[in-house]
């Protein structure tokens, strides 16, 4: 016959396990469990997929711009810069024109040099882009002082 001081810690352990199980039921959401990809890759809270689907879309693509800014859109489409999305220079449209009412424009020299700093790399299309040596071609002056990015051909030089 075992005495009660032997049983008491056992009851305490059983109590703690029961508490953990109750806490687990309360804390772990129902959507947590094994999903499509099994235990190895699919053990997660399914509801979290919704969180990632709800992230705000910030870049709306040039199709979003073309109705209101059709003049700018159609003119740039005639140039080699047609391949550049408006938002690459004008910033993400978000909810424009409500929010933000005005978009910032990146007119910096560095913005143009992303492509037009000459790097004659073999095996890369970078070598095919007309470029300048930024240390020699009017250093310190913004490109837009002479060149119009919406009309980048040399006839467009101001």
């Amino acid at each position: 016959m075992m005495k009660s001081h032997v049983w008491r810690p056992l009851y305490a352990v059983i109590g703690i396990v029961a508490l953990i199980l109750i806490a687990r039921v309360l804390v772990v959401p129902d959507s947590f469990g094994v999903h499509e990809r099994g235990y190895m890759y699919g053990w997660y809270n399914k509801a979290d997929e919704g969180f990632w689907k709800k992230v705000t879309v910030k870049y709306k693509s040039s199709d979003y711009c073309k109705d209101c800014h059709s003049d700018k859109y159609s003119s740039i489409m005639q140039t080699p810069h047609a391949i550049i999305q408006c938002e690459n220079c004008h910033g993400p449209a978000m909810e424009h024109p409500e929010n933000p009412a005005r978009l910032s424009i990146d007119k910096s020299r560095e913005q143009c040099l992303r492509c037009h700093s000459r790097l004659p790399y073999p095996t890369s299309d970078r070598a095919k882009i007309r470029g300048i040596d930024p240390d020699k071609h009017n250093p310190g002056i913004e490109c837009v002082a002479c060149h119009n990015p919406h009309k980048p051909s040399l006839e467009g030089v101001k």
Binding site: Y59, E87, N88, R114, C115, S124, D125, R126, I129
Partner: peptide, 11 residues
């Protein structure tokens, strides 16, 4: 085709 303009990283 990549020319290293970095617009992808910025976006």
């Amino acid at each position: 085709k990549c020319v290293g303009c970095g617009f992808c990283v910025k976006a």
